[in-house]
Structure formats: C-alpha cells, structure tokens
C-alpha cells in the first residue's frame, strides 16, 4: 500500500482532546468532527488536512478512547499519520477505521512531499528515507480492507 501527501508538522503529546474537543462529542456528525479537528491547537488547521500526512512528535493521540478523534482525521482527508509513538487506544482506533499510522522517527518540513510504503515500512520526505516499525500482518490486513468493519464484511 503506497500513499503520498503533503506534510503537516505537529509537536509531541498531541492528545485526543486536541484532535477533537469533548464539546463536539455529543453529535454523530462526522463532517462537524472533521471541520473542528485540531481546533484547540490551531483553528486554521482543519482546512489544510485534505491530502495531508501528519508528521508528529511522540505520543500522538494520547488520552481519551474517543474514536471520534481518528474519525475526524480520516473524514477531513488525512492520508496517514507518522509519529515515533502513539497513544495505544488511538493507534487501534485508527487502524480499525482504516486510517494508516506509522511509527517512525523522522524530520518534518512543513508542506514537504511525503511518500509512504506501508507494507515495506518506508517513509520518504524530500528525498530523505526513513524506516518505520513494520505494522503487523493483521494490522495491514485491516488497513487494506479499509477498517475492521469492512474486513469483517469481506470475510462474511
């Protein structure tokens, strides 16, 4: 699975409250989650997420179990998220809804062109190559299907 997108660089410990604030959790409106993504971090960011690959610092998605955080990013058009480490519930949620994540320590230049080879576990940013921790076969299988629900539908 090969992906590409435009880099958006974020810092460390971006928690799920910052990805989608608690005040938006009483709706089921995915479009609203997408339009309010990262609102408390930078209200202008949501508009730039389409086609973006987020390159963040460690512990991205720490905190709450709200799957709305992963959904908001996918819905907004985020192609993938790269970070040295992820909050583990966010990690599972993202894979489960088909949002690719890669554990990789790499430098980030805002707006740079990023290429990812999920199967190989490779990231390339402006000619610099980085190796990511490989996703397990099961996680890849879920991602390729587009999510756990989709995978289950295929199997049925």
């Amino acid at each position: 699975m090969r992906l590409e997108g435009t880099a958006i660089c974020l810092g460390e410990d971006v928690d799920t409250d910052l990805i989608i604030a608690g005040r938006y959790l009483r709706t089921k409106d995915r479009g609203l989650w997408a339009s309010r993504a990262f609102e408390d971090l930078d209200p202008a960011l949501a508009k730039r997420l389409k086609g973006a690959i987020i390159v963040a610092g460690k512990n991205f998605g720490c905190g709450s179990s709200r799957e709305q955080a992963a959904i908001a990013l996918k819905e907004a058009g985020v192609v993938a998220v790269i970070a040295p480490s992820f909050g583990r519930i966010f990690f599972r949620n993202a894979i489960n809804i088909g949002l690719p994540l890669l554990e990789c320590e790499c430098g980030c230049t805002e707006g740079a062109h990023v290429r990812i080879d999920l199967g190989e576990g490779r990231v390339s940013i402006e000619g610099n190559m980085y190796r990511s921790r490989p996703l397990s076969p099961r996680m890849l299988e879920i991602l390729l299907a587009g999510g756990l629900v989709e995978l289950w539908r295929c199997r049925r």
């Binding site: 179990s65 519930i89 949620n93 809804i97």
Partner: peptide, 20 residues
C-alpha cells in the same frame, strides 16, 4: 480510557475505542 482502573480488583481491564 480510564477502564484501566479495575486493575485494582486484580482484573485485566483496558479502555478501547468504539469499533473494538
């Protein structure tokens, strides 16, 4: 996410997302 609290009862307890 704070489901991990029930480890106090000697259970393996963990928080999960909505798809899980």
């Amino acid at each position: 996410s704070h489901t991990c609290m029930y480890g106090a009862a000697g259970a393996f307890a963990t928080g999960i997302g909505s798809t899980d």
